[in-house]
Computed example of a mutant assay.
Amino acid sequence: MTATLTAPAPAPATSAGLSHRLGLWFAHAYVLGMCGTLAGAYFFQFGLGEYPCPMCLLQRMFFLLSAVGPAWIIARSRNGAVTTREFAAGWGWAVVAALIGSTVSATQVLMHIVPPDPGYAGALFGLHLYTWALIAFLAAAVAAGAALFLAPEAEPLDAGVASPALRRASAVTLAVLLAFAASNLVACFVLQGFHWQMPGDPTSYRLITDLL
């Protein structure tokens, strides 16, 4: 009497695999959120004609730096599984950059509180952009810290977690971040030109003014 062997049925997708994919999608949302914040700043600069001050540009830099951590996790997941150390390093970078950026924003807020003055540039819902930047930085630090806290459930340990949809999304997300980084560099250069220092209250694009 011979026994027949049957191939095991494929294992269904587990909730753990789903949580790992959600963790990777959250990294995408974080990066795009940082870029969306910069898009709002661009609207005030180019749409409303409000020139960013040096501290505003410094805050933009830290928004981009905070996005670099999860962007690195996204890029790493395209080539295989992400280790716990890599996952923690990416989100830890995001937390540190967001906290440093929040100190820059808080400093600018205090500069216009003591002594009290009308504040720099326009406002949105009664709050100036540097106040919104402080709120955004603190929210980003909390979000990145939550991702670190949930690392066992959120880190993409399996190379198969990066589904075709996630791989396509990763190319778009990384391209968007690169575009914002490049555009911010160009905007800073046009604003400052070839001068070593930028005025605290810029009133023109100095590169264009110098060329004309």
Rank of each mutant, 00 (worst) to 15 (best):
T6C: 01
A7T: 08
P8A: 15
S15W: 00
G17Q: 12
S19P: 01
L24Y: 07
L24E: 10
H28D: 04
Y30R: 06
V31E: 14
L32D: 05
C35S: 12
F43R: 06
G47C: 09
P52N: 11
P52E: 12
C53L: 05
P54G: 05
Q59L: 05
Q59W: 00
M61K: 15
L65I: 13
S66N: 11
G69D: 06
P70K: 08
P70C: 10
W72E: 06
G80W: 05
V82M: 03
V82K: 00
T83L: 01
T84W: 02
E86H: 02
F87M: 04
A89H: 03
V95L: 12
S102Y: 13
S102D: 14
V104Q: 09
S105R: 03
A106P: 10
P118D: 04
A121G: 08
A123Y: 04
H128V: 06
L129V: 10
Y130L: 02
W132Q: 02
A133T: 11
L138I: 12
A139N: 03
V142E: 03
G145P: 10
A146D: 01
P152S: 01
A154C: 07
S163A: 04
S163Y: 00
P164M: 08
A165E: 05
L166V: 07
R167D: 13
L174T: 14
L177P: 05
L177M: 12
L178S: 14
V190P: 00
Q192K: 15
F194C: 06
F194N: 11
D201A: 11
D201S: 07
P202A: 11
S204C: 09
S204R: 12
Y205C: 09
Y205M: 14
R206I: 08
L211H: 02
